[in-house]
Design a protein around this nucleic acid. Sequence first.
DNA 1: ATCTTTTATATAACAGTGTTATTTTAACTG
DNA 2: CAGTTAAAATAACACTGTTATATAAAAGAT
Lengths: 225, 225
Amino acid sequence: MNSAQKEKTRRPRRVSAEVQRTELLDAASDMLAGGGPEALSVRKLANAVGTSTMTIYTAFEGKDGVIAALYEEAFARMADFQEAVPEGNSPLEWLAGLGAAYRAFALKNPSYYALIMSETLPISQFQKQEAEPLARGIARQRSYRSLFDAVSACQDQGLMSSDHATEEVTAVLWATVHGHVSLELAGFHESKAAADSRFLLLTQSVLTGLLTPKGKKAWRAFAAN
Amino acid sequence: MNSAQKEKTRRPRRVSAEVQRTELLDAASDMLAGGGPEALSVRKLANAVGTSTMTIYTAFEGKDGVIAALYEEAFARMADFQEAVPEGNSPLEWLAGLGAAYRAFALKNPSYYALIMSETLPISQFQKQEAEPLARGIARQRSYRSLFDAVSACQDQGLMSSDHATEEVTAVLWATVHGHVSLELAGFHESKAAADSRFLLLTQSVLTGLLTPKGKKAWRAFAAN
DNA sequence: ATCTTTTATATAACAGTGTTATTTTAACTG
DNA sequence: CAGTTAAAATAACACTGTTATATAAAAGAT
């Protein structure tokens, strides 16, 4: 009430730094999802929330700051998708679910996925500032963690060979799913059905190459239903 | 001689459309390889060859035209790499060579590879004009053709299952190698050795998932040396 | 409560970008 | 050789991200 009165008489200059930030970020993600990266400009963003361009420079540190914030948001959303996957009866089921969730996220949030994968291209318009090894950065990410844990569980149960380090197998699976998804998003496949069947073939192939005999048996049992 | 004399007396305005084109294209590729996509501007390009911006608009159709031309150049170079791979004694050897060549090309020409793969990201700064299915476009490409032929040969010799269509298997292998390479170019792996071993693990895994028993045997024999 | 200092915002300017309109100028043609 | 055509240069337009300056609100001090 008190503050409401205050609002009427004289509107405070900044509505609290945090709501300003999220308001800007929401608008930015909308613009990104709407018209791609070139639809995201500091001027349009400022207009969208009804302020001036300087707001972007105090809330973030210019356009790159906005991108960086969106980048973290993208990873958070991806992680939400991954962590929503039930572990199921077998780690193999978990693994399959994680792969499907990764793909589903990418297809439903192409802009955010593009953001995540923008570092994947050697030369990106979203230049990376610090030159830390990408693996370290991603390793800390929750979404990578899920996959790692699933692989680890598979190895623990003897479903997957322990000849190779868990990180190594995780990286291989990551590359596999990423490879397919980026092609699918590019419209490489002629239909959704074709994309589905190729995703299945790819994941099945790489898995049968990584599973132990026991793992293969369990996989067949799981894939039956 | 005649033309040389002519050059001395009065230098022709445009030195023939084609040399102009290639001159611009060379400069453009240098800029792209040098400082990434943002180093490539029509103004800088015009300055580099000592002309005005309008030249770019008559030779190509603006910046997008230059990008498109570089894009074709990239595919041509990639195809050169692929076609330089000897077919070897077995299609499996050929296949392995093609994968290695793909990776080698990407590592040696990151800018050109980024160009090729720019269509792979759903939202690219190198927007695609025509909305034709990417698979059709690539299918006509020479580099894709090599892989397709190798897969086909493997199937013909019973090394690879013919349960799945050749296009399907080709797409799967394409996604596999692309997935690894894009991660490697992003600096995902901590060292070249790590990248090497993961590339090997990935390709071996997916292959053993696709090969027939006969194929697996042949692969082991080939991988021994 | 008033005065001062700090800080976020707005306005305007700067250095770029791709593209287009206009003008100049070289090359071709009758 | 004059007239036409087409390409190149110049300049302008509508943008972009960023920075400098000025204003006004919030915070701190007396």
